[in-house]
Amino acid sequence: MNYDGPFIIQIISTFSKFLLENTVATEHVSKKLYRVFIELAQNVALYSSERVGLINGAFIGKGKVYIIENNDAFKCITINRIHKEHAATLIKNCSEINITPIEALRTKKRNLYKIANVQDTGAHIGLIMIYTYSANPLEFEIIDNEDGESYFKIAATINKVENS
């Protein structure tokens, strides 16, 4: 499954329900894929620097999502344009999440709730939740194109047989 366009809530909801209802996997694994997809998709909606105007006057982030399945796992990948100056923070946050023990991440998440603006909890907590739900390291990179634009690519893997 793949999609390229604005990540409006109706599209996120339709795709996520499709994943939940049509994924051949245990209910728990399907739920993990569902939740990871929504968190990744809403990161694009909120933080992509490529914005699309909607009829109601709001602007929503544009990007790409791919769901890939192999024998062992599902992989959910999103790509969205970012402001160049955010690249280092995204890489730092993802790198830290991957090496932080899960209990410490839970504490970090709670601390972030305290400092987050009430209207915007920020991408950092979302990244922690993606890591927690997927139970696998985040794969991420910054892609610079020849026009000088930067894109954030992130992938979360959900194993079909859960980690012990």
Binding site: I38, E39, Q42, Y113, V118, T121, I125, G126, M129
Partner: peptide, 13 residues
Amino acid sequence: TYFNTSSSRFILE
């Protein structure tokens, strides 16, 4: 049964 990151902030509130 599911709430995203933004909703968590308000549930906590």
